[in-house]
Simulated assay, not measured.
Amino acid sequence: METSTFVYDGDCAFCTRCAQFIERRIPTGARVVPWQFADLAALGLTEAECEEAVQWVGADGSRAAGPDAIARLLGESGPAWRVAGAGLRFPPVRAAAWPAYRWVARNRHRLPGGTAACALPQEARERLYGPTGRPGPTS
């Protein structure tokens, strides 16, 4: 693989708006692509992984998901964005980022630009948050 790839849910209007922001405002050499149009097998990803969180596949084959994927994207961007990426990797910030990311993922259909299509499938919600809707253990 020659370039890093950031994969998001193209069926989600909120996710698509965020990806458009990345493409317009964040100078990165990474490909930003909806998982529905990505060669998941070549990237070593599954649909289930992509439905649960944004994904990062580095040019070196490294992988990250959720806020860790966002930190990797920012880390390979312009100078100011690299600082933001480093901040997101700082252990106390990272510890807070995962619950915040899960909340956004669970409620993305309610956020600006979101639509009902943004709601995660029930199976994915239960896998992430359990049948009660409370966050489960992180992987």
Rank of each mutant, 00 (worst) to 15 (best):
L40W: 13
R89P: 06
H109F: 13
R82T: 05
E47C: 03
Y129H: 14
A117V: 03
A38T: 07
A13I: 03
R82N: 08
G133F: 14
P91S: 07
A116E: 15
Q55M: 04
W98P: 01
E126W: 12
E52V: 01
R108H: 11
E47I: 01
P67L: 02
Q20Y: 00
C50R: 12
S77P: 09
G10M: 04
A105K: 08
G44Y: 02
F37V: 12
T46N: 01
V104E: 00
G114R: 08
D60S: 05
L88W: 05
E76D: 12
A117D: 15
T28I: 09
A119W: 11
D39F: 10
E52A: 13
A96T: 10
Q122L: 15
V54E: 11
G29L: 14
Q122Y: 02
E126S: 05
F6N: 04
Y8C: 09
V93P: 02
C18M: 11
D9Q: 06
E23I: 02
C118Q: 02
V104K: 00
Q55W: 08
G61E: 03
Y101M: 07
Q20C: 04
R94F: 07
S139V: 12
E23P: 00
G130C: 13
P99W: 11
A42R: 15
P67A: 13
G87N: 04
R89K: 11
T5F: 01
A119Q: 14
G58R: 14
R31Y: 08
W81F: 07
